[in-house]
Structures are given as C-alpha cells and as structure tokens.
Design a protein around this nucleic acid. Structure first.
Lengths: 151, 151
DNA sequence: CGCGGACATGTATAATTATACAAAAAAATG
DNA sequence: CATTTTTTTGTATAATTATACATGTCCGCG
C-alpha cells in the first residue's frame, strides 16, 4: 500500500467532514479504498501531527497548525484568569501585565451596567452602575473569560 | 471548589509546559492546589475545547483556536473604535496601542479592494486600490467594527 | 424553614487510542 | 541474484479518555 496516498486521503477526509473517532475515520478510509487497522491509523495520525479537538459539535480531528498556538495570548478570554465579586465591585485577575489592556477592552464594551474600571498589573476593579447589577457584570465578565471558541 | 480558577489554572499550565496526558495534567493541577479526578478533568478539557496534538515532542494538550480568521473577527470589533474616510483614504481609530495588531488583521483579509495599511498607535490608514472603492472599504471596516460579539 | 432544580463531582466502567511484539514487505547492500 | 536491514503492518492488549449513574452542594422560591 502507498502510505503517502493514504496520508493524503486522511488529510482530505478530516478537512472536509467532521470525523470524531479513529473508527469513523477508519471506515471513511476504507470507503476511499484504504483498508487498514486502527493501529496503523493511530500511527498515521501521529505521523501527520493531527490534533483531536473537543468542539461544540463533539470531538473532531483537525490538521494542526502550530502557529495557531502563538496567537492565543492575544485573546481576552485567555487573558482573564479569574472573576470575583464582592457586594460592590467585580475583581478581574488577568495574566501578569495584561490588566491595562483587558481593562481597555472592557471599557470599550460601553456596557450599561459598567460604570468604570481601574487597572493595575494583573488586577482590574470593575465598578457596576449599581450594586444591584453586580451579578450581571460578573456574569458578563465570566462570559468573556469562558469564551473558548466561536461556535 | 472554584471551577473558574481551575479552568484558568488548566489554561495556564498547558500554555506554559508540555503536558501529554490527563494524568500528567491532573498531577500538575494537584500541585497547583486543585485536587480533582480524571473524570472531572476530562469534562473541564471538553468545556474548554482543548485539543490534544501529536507533536514531534510527543502528545500534548493545547488551547485550540478553531479558525484564525473567524476568531480574530470576534475581537477586532472591540478594538476598532471609529471608521472614517475622505476621498482617498479610510481612517480607522483603534484602542490605544492596537493599531498595529488590527492592521495585521485587516491585511490578513487580503481583500481585493484594499491596497495596504499604515498603522500608528491608535490610527490606521487604509488605502483602497482605487478611490472609487473608498466607500466599499469603509463599509467593510465598519462591518468589522460592528461585530461585537460578547457572550 | 424545606423543597426542587441546576450544577458539579466522584466512582466505575465503557469507549477510544497507543504500543509491544511478531511477521511481512520493501529497500539496501554486496 | 541472495542476504541483510529497514520499514510497515496486524494482533493483542495496555494506556488513556469519555461517560453513565449516583451523590452532594448551592441557590431560589414559597
């Protein structure tokens, strides 16, 4: 069997359809004329550096691009480490040195429940317009932090 | 236990070191003060959309960014503050210090109506391929600005 | 206050993936 | 060409991950 052709087929299949398990992929390969066992497929995926991702639509295999990792620090959801609140303020902990930048983004939301922010190095104090809206602000900011993917 | 803190710790750990199995990650979390079982960790990784990659150095967990272009647009909208134009240029105002980054994103669109960009601190000059396409470029960039998708 | 619902977690185990070992196939060598 | 070495593959199973089920916690409501 031609290993290169098989590798090309693997890349084609996972680029064009949602494939979540090796068994699914093995069957798709078989349909494409490449009959192999799970063991061989596992080795192929390793050779190809394929990634298995937990996506909103379930697990899926994707071609992994290294450079994607390097951009992760640009995104607010990954820069916010923790969101807490007391009765009158919401406190956001960020990666070191990112408080200012994250605070600016929070300000730019111009959210009606947010009065203002004060940022240090890795801590931001977010003031709600009313203590009654504290929870609302907190949920908003937690939503930012939890944003993992564009669904 | 505080799930948010734990998620932040997970993201921090896998961003800063090579972690290849859930058991390794579980131990790292335990060292960081988060004692959980493999089951809970599996759920966390699913929640976070983490990917497991076969890399040259062995398997590793990485923060997965689904699509670079789509993800960039999720946030660019928060960073563009204003879009204006005269007869020959479109001017984009950004958050302070973000002009370079936003300009890169605009460049990455490879839009046929955009010739190039020049970025300062919070201002980008966008040159259309023709003055006749000024309005088109302006609408495009205003469209980007309007994509404020949070939570 | 008690209750119900939502959420989170652990236990046990099913599902999925990786790999040791052996054999076969392909490539290299004299 | 025959032989040796390297690569590839399958089988069986170990390793790893995902999930069904049960339990505990927290919160809001009457």
């Amino acid at each position: 069997m031609d290993k290169q052709s098989r590798h090309a087929a693997i890349k084609h299949i996972i680029s064009h359809r949602l494939v979540g398990t090796q068994e699914d992929l093995r069957k798709a390969l078989k349909s494409a004329g490449f009959g192999i066992t799970q063991a061989t497929l596992s080795r192929d995926l390793k050779d190809l550096g394929v990634a298995r991702v937990n996506s909103p639509e379930g697990p899926k295999y994707v071609i992994h691009v290294e450079s994607e990792e390097r951009r992760l620090q640009s995104f607010i959801g990954l820069e916010i480490e923790q969101v807490d609140a007391n009765e009158s303020l919401v406190v956001v902990k960020t990666l070191p040195g990112r408080a200012q930048g994250v605070a600016e983004i929070i300000d730019s939301l111009h959210h009606p429940a947010i009065l203002g922010t004060i940022a240090g190095d890795n801590t931001i104090l977010v003031t709600p317009t009313s203590t009654k809206r504290n929870k609302e602000v907190m949920k908003l900011l937690q939503g930012l932090m939890m944003k993992k993917q564009v669904a």
